[in-house]
Design a protein around this nucleic acid. Structure first.
Lengths: 246, 246
DNA sequence: GCCGAGAATGAATCCATCC
DNA sequence: AGGATGGATTCATTCTCGG
């Protein structure tokens, strides 16, 4: 097969439209994988998980068009297999010492930690995004955090940076490009793990928040997304972002 | 066998000295299990985990006597089996709808979530104790939190309380009764999950922080601890604690 | 008594070194 | 080869002590 043609490209950012499993074999030289994959979560019971994404996740306010996102209906076993496979494929595109950071919710956290190790990465910890009080439920702990599982490909490069293991930021309200969109400052916090000069890869780009934050920090970055609408959104957002000059 | 004799007892609190597996079969009517078991953690490598508690966890400076605590040297497989067994034994002492909350660190969180489910409980979420910045390590996310895995035995009772899923408190400094001692306010936060009138059980009591907090909130409570020195410490602390009057 | 400077400390982690 | 040992590292907070 011929190498894929970028959907979008500028001096720092590259976007490929397609399935990660098809694109990843053509990539190399990646120094950091930072992503927010589909969680396949959304309920304790199989019936709850199999609802459409727009039904099972709450959406309020006036909404831009947000297509369903694919690949969010796996059961736990399938999620483990699928996540192990993409983590392995991403690893093959990486240089030694590359770092990994993946968002996940509480329900799939244990499964993703298994997948990280099954995919050949060293799991090194959990970082916490504190979202404030979170959604209250009577008699239960509120759902106040999302989690970032992180690790590396062998020994990590020595660095003189000390990113905090917990970061507080309000979740986005109202208008969003994507139902699971993360605030830019949250992405910037996670990118604090990435050594200067590393190429950042997001194999589940969505609306492109990872690339926007990476570009603004001066990282070269690569995004993969199968939904053309999201590719369009991400290309627009990334093209409007100015990189820091050094 | 005859039922065990309490090591200590007052109007609200009861302490048994012995192994949880020996004592639990005699207990019943428990409405909440709140505990901080040995993590069997302390390092990425087997050699590190196998150290004595005083070696692998930092203890320096002038300190009160703090004995080693037992059962902190299991490998991951043994930890899963052992945790499943005590969770199952504790469940058998519980009434329907009982709640469970167990502290754990990042490394053993996935394993404990498996054990909770293997032990017959419904796992319902993760609550976060934010400890501030945490201990720094160059180039990595700081270790800024410990975690509380919580769940229930079937459906939970309806309640009019909304405990936060994330709680911030500094870890205790200097003089402590136990190397892993939790601040009283942290225990009080976790007890926010417990319905009024429930009997609180801590099968790994240690220096008794769970019982101190439970008694001060007016809960009846039961603690089990195999080390006599810790039983003594806990009995002293619990006896000095005054219960809220209603 | 209050304030500020300096010291001490943490369920840590990594790695070189020695058996 | 692999397990045990010891040293170096770091930031935010608390503690100590002197002025």
């Amino acid at each position: 097969m011929t190498p894929p043609k970028p959907y979008y490209q500028d001096d720092l950012a590259t976007i490929y439209r397609g399935d990660s499993f098809d694109i990843l074999p053509y990539l190399s030289g990646i120094g950091a994988v930072v992503t927010d994959p589909p969680y396949s979560s959304g309920g304790a019971f199989r019936g709850d998980r199999m609802q459409s994404t727009s039904t099972k996740y709450v959406q309020t306010g006036t909404q831009a068009y947000r297509p369903e996102f694919a690949g969010d209906n796996r059961d736990q076993h399938s999620f483990l297999v699928w996540a192990s496979l993409w983590l392995n494929a991403a690893r093959n595109a990486c240089v030694p010492g590359a770092v990994l950071a993946s968002f996940i919710d509480w329900r799939q956290l244990p499964t993703l930690s298994d997948a990280i190790q099954a995919g050949g990465w060293t799991w090194r910890g959990i970082a916490v995004w504190s979202k404030g009080f979170g959604r209250p439920t009577p008699g239960r702990f509120s759902n106040a955090a999302e989690y970032v599982l992180w690790g590396s490909l062998g020994a990590m490069a020595e660095r003189d940076a000390y990113p905090p293991g917990l970061f507080t930021a309000q979740p986005p309200r109202g208008e969003r490009e994507h139902i699971a969109q993360k605030p830019d400052e949250v992405m910037g916090w996670v990118l604090g793990l990435v050594p200067p000069g590393a190429v950042v890869l997001d194999p589940f780009m969505g609306s492109g928040s990872t690339l926007v934050a990476a570009k603004s920090l001066g990282f070269r970055c690569v995004g993969i997304e199968c939904d053309e609408r999201y590719c369009e959104t991400a290309a627009r957002r990334v093209s409007q972002e100015m990189a820091l000059s050094f």
